[in-house]
């Protein structure tokens, strides 16, 4: 047994103007999960400590919280992997959410991101044309099974810096869920779904990889890349800045082995989009004044063929 101190964020939205912290000491084996330690604290010391939990086996997604500043499932985090040398574990509610009480947050904005997806199968043909199941190859199903492990715990959403600056961004979990339908061979709304998730700011993802930390190994970041690729492959909303930017970046690197910044700006905004270009003109002028203006043309690096070989090996789509 070990004495573990839980340093807990305390707040009640009905009565408290500001949060405070409580330190609660529990006597538990040090391999006890953070959730069980909280459960012990609530049962034996302070019944008002509040948190969500249900399955305690990493399948219901209820108990995501910040543990020593990093979001994760309390039921999957043993105390001895996170406590400091004094046995202290610091617990806070998930960021990117409004706190309700202690570790409980308002989840509604997160669920809304799913609702916008029309998250249900919309088959290409009528059910009545199939007396039995629709046939799906094990390989096609495997792609979905990997994403189906998502338990909607919102860990990735809480970790996402883009959500923190732009709450309209769909976030990693919803994009992974969109992928689940986009890649479902039974579904008949692939293009519409790609368009919807693009409108929900798919392309705002900055590829910081924060959401690669997924307690269920769904790896939403890779699914975001998959959806972006699907968007380009199916040529959905190709005139939006997101896909244009991705393509022109690829194109200049493939052609020159370098990022041709001038061309990237023009390609992203549109060479004939005078209004758009005028909008960035002041920035260009300031850069020129400081001697930072990138050259209008970039000469290919020596052995640029090797760069092109990499592109071909990765089959990166370039228009």
């Amino acid at each position: 047994m070990a004495k573990i101190t839980l340093d807990i964020f305390r707040f009640d939205e009905a009565t408290d103007a500001v949060p405070h912290r409580d330190a609660v000491v529990v006597d538990v084996p040090e391999t006890t999960t953070v959730l069980d330690a909280l459960e012990t604290a609530k049962a034996e010391i302070d019944g008002s400590i509040s948190f969500r939990r249900s399955c305690r086996s990493a399948i219901c997604g209820s108990c995501s919280m910040n543990i020593n500043g990093i979001t994760g499932l309390a039921c999957k985090t043993p105390c001895n992997t996170v406590m400091d040398e004094k046995g202290v574990v610091v617990v806070d509610p998930m960021p990117n959410f409004q706190p309700m009480k202690d570790l409980v947050v308002h989840m509604d904005p997160f669920w809304d991101k799913y609702s916008r997806l029309k998250p249900y199968l919309q088959p290409a043909d009528a059910d009545s044309t199939h007396e039995r199941e629709r046939r799906v190859s094990p390989e096609d199903m495997k792609k979905l099974v990997d994403v189906a492990n998502c338990i909607m715990c919102a860990t990735c959403y809480a970790l996402c810096p883009v959500v923190s600056v732009d709450p309209a961004f769909a976030g990693p979990a919803a994009i992974a869920y969109a992928y689940r339908f986009i890649e479902d061979v039974r579904d008949g709304q692939r293009k519409e779904r790609i368009a919807q998730i693009s409108e929900d700011y798919l392309w705002l993802c900055a590829h910081c990889y924060a959401c690669s930390y997924c307690p269920k190994h769904v790896d939403p970041h890779d699914r975001i890349i998959d959806v972006k690729r699907a968007s380009i492959k199916d040529r959905v909303l190709m005139n939006e800045r997101g896909p244009r930017h991705a393509l022109v970046v690829s194109k200049t690197i493939k052609q020159t082995g370098m990022l041709a910044e001038t061309e990237v700006i023009q390609g992203t905004i549109g060479r004939f989009n005078v209004r758009g270009l005028l909008k960035v003109a002041p920035l260009g002028l300031r850069m020129a004044a400081k001697g930072k203006m990138p050259p209008p043309f970039v000469k290919p690096i020596p052995k640029v063929d090797e760069v092109r070989t990499i592109f071909e090996a990765l089959e990166v789509p370039v228009s």
């Binding site: 009640d12 009905a14 302070d46 019944g47 008002s48 309700m100």
Partner: peptide
């Protein structure tokens, strides 16, 4: 023990 009206899981 908890007398709160908010999310009173006690």
């Amino acid at each position: 023990m908890d007398k709160s009206k908010t999310f009173n899981t006690d």
